[in-house]
Design a protein around this nucleic acid. Structure first.
Lengths: 335, 335
DNA sequence: AGAATCTAGTAAACCGATTTACTTAACCTG
DNA sequence: CAGGTTAAGTAAATCGGTTTACTAGATTCT
């Protein structure tokens, strides 16, 4: 491959001239410019990215750290970030943590070690103080989707409280008073907020008449299946509706309930959260709170790049994206 | 950040000594080694990746080029490649083409331009001779999932012919004789092979008694919806079963058929392909040929790295991964 | 004792761009 | 025509590793 020196020689000028001409820091008369352009074309010159990065001290690459890539939610998020990165001429280095905390910490080092200029961090489990500390000193990064308590970096979430509220109001308005909230172990901020909103929504309609039970767990298929099995085994006196706070939980619940005598929504109503997968094709189609996942990815990068000057971030600087309730057929009045 | 020079000074040796010690090309007595180790620890030294790459002439990064990231199929593929790359200490640069041919060509330049050491190429549309030519001179790369005719690089596909065969045999054995094959425009190798296998499977059971129609199109939702609408509007005399050759097509078909009077599998049987999404939760659960997508990703990287010596590849060097038929409830005898 | 070998390193040339500070020649101005 | 300005560049340092070829001193061999 031709390098800058080759081009300079072919054009009869010096390296510096070519470099500065290409970067626009030097105005050249038409003849010289043409000589350089011709040499570049003839030699098929392309700047060596590693030399460039070493010299400039930046990589024009950003890292995206996600728990998993293969779930529809994160896949969509990744796609959105990639699109946005590409449109800004940045490369995207993708890293999956599979929720191993030591991996999360390792990947945060990518910034300081110079691999990437910035990092978008997405986690899926309860925050850990050491991680927050590490985030604070990691360099330019933003936290997306799930909060990391104690991290003073720009944050971008969907409006979980509002999502919970919409679900709660909808179930209460459909007549439900005794409901089960599934997912989002207490320490997870997203879960806590969804719960708060959910309770607020229900009470706004039915005041003190509501009884909300909680099935703690993460957002996984398995947690959904387990909640479903536990629900089935309770017999009479069980709640009349379930708010499942992720697509995976909905799927797990559908699987478990599908194996039982219980019918949705005749015996139990269900409201989901995320609405990224093809929930409209399930039997019955799932009523769910839809997260604006593409926007989450798109604005995450904007937030990262605009925040890069590292203004000492105020203790809390969250951006919330609005959510919507998509009504389908998994909700009916209680039996 | 501390650099090699700082470490050398702190340890009282030269840069070369530290570098060679770290790379194992120099044996040192315990005292010197300890001095270096201590200095590294104290200064928190981490090699600068750009300097390293410039010097070594490689990036320890590979690129993955896919049509789209957000579909379950590609998301799973990406996840598998990432896992494998990570376990080998490689970074993954992710690029989505969204099926814009000029993008595909651009991304192939990443190798020659030195951005990455190798590239896994996945396309989703009919091959184009210019692209094949470009692949041949692009450097270390492999083609996965969909063939690019004319490219003489290592290739990895699932066994599309066998997948078609399993579907065809299954439908014929269920009594179907008049069927519709949806997807895989003719020039696409995956589609052609699925069709060949499909025909072979049906004829093996029903010989000359079979009538196979084709609905051409790509593997998209929209093509599925269209095929579904066309199917519905035909009234009597329409095929009794449909082989939809991607998850997206299945979803499109389900959507269209769901809006009609037709019931699956009472009025029409459906066999899908891919089986990556939650097809078991659809109404009714979808019988489908399952692709081993994770293996596709995993072996893709292996193929790339093992093939890197660039042995002048024989005109055809394909690896095929076995597929399986997952029987659920979208197939029944014809009405 | 002199030669050969081994140990423990090192100086300096890369890799290929970027950038600062400087030069040279031409041109203008009063 | 001295002095200043502008145009059109350039030499050389820098980014931070890697690697080759080499050396000074110690040990072993004959």
């Amino acid at each position: 491959m031709a390098n800058l020196h080759d081009v300079a020689k072919a054009a009869g000028v010096s390296k510096a001239t070519v470099s500065r001409y290409l970067n626009g820091s030097l105005q050249l008369p038409a003849r010289t410019a043409k000589a350089i352009d011709d040499a570049i074309k003839r030699l098929e010159y392309v700047p060596n990215p590693h030399a460039r990065r070493l010299s400039l001290g930046r990589s024009d690459t950003i890292a995206l750290v996600v728990p998993d890539i293969s779930t529809p939610f994160f896949a969509t998020l990744v796609a959105a970030v990639e699109t946005e990165a590409d449109s800004r001429g940045l490369s995207l280095a993708l890293h999956a943590t599979l929720n191993r905390p030591e991996r999360e910490a390792t990947y945060l080092d990518l910034i300081r070690q110079g691999h990437v200029d910035g990092l978008i961090f997405v986690t899926n489990h309860v925050a850990n103080p050491a991680l927050a500390e590490k985030l604070n000193s990691a360099g330019p990064c933003v936290v997306v989707d799930e909060d990391v308590v104690g991290a003073h970096v720009p944050k971008l979430f969907c409006d979980n409280e509002q999502g919970g509220y919409l679900a709660g109001r909808h179930l209460a308005e459909s007549g439900h008073r005794h409901v089960l909230f599934v997912g989002g172990v207490d320490q997870m901020v997203s879960g806590a907020r969804r719960y708060q909103g959910f309770e607020r929504g229900m009470r706004e309609v039915a005041a003190d008449d509501v009884l909300i039970e909680r099935s703690r767990g993460d957002y996984s298929f398995e947690a959904g299946r387990e909640a479903g099995r536990a629900f089935i085994s309770r017999g009479r006196g069980r709640p009349t509706a379930i708010f499942a706070t992720s697509d995976e939980l909905v799927i797990g619940l559908y699987e478990a309930l599908g194996d039982s005598e219980l019918s949705i929504p005749r015996d139990v109503s269900i409201v989901g959260f995320d609405d990224v997968g093809p929930l409209h094709l399930f039997a019955p189609p799932v009523t769910a709170v839809r997260q604006p996942v593409r926007d989450l990815g798109k604005y995450a990068l904007a937030l990262l790049l605009d925040a890069e000057p590292m203004t000492p971030a105020p203790p809390s600087n969250e951006t919330l994206l609005p959510v919507t309730l998509i009504e389908r057929q998994s909700v009916a009045p209680p039996p």
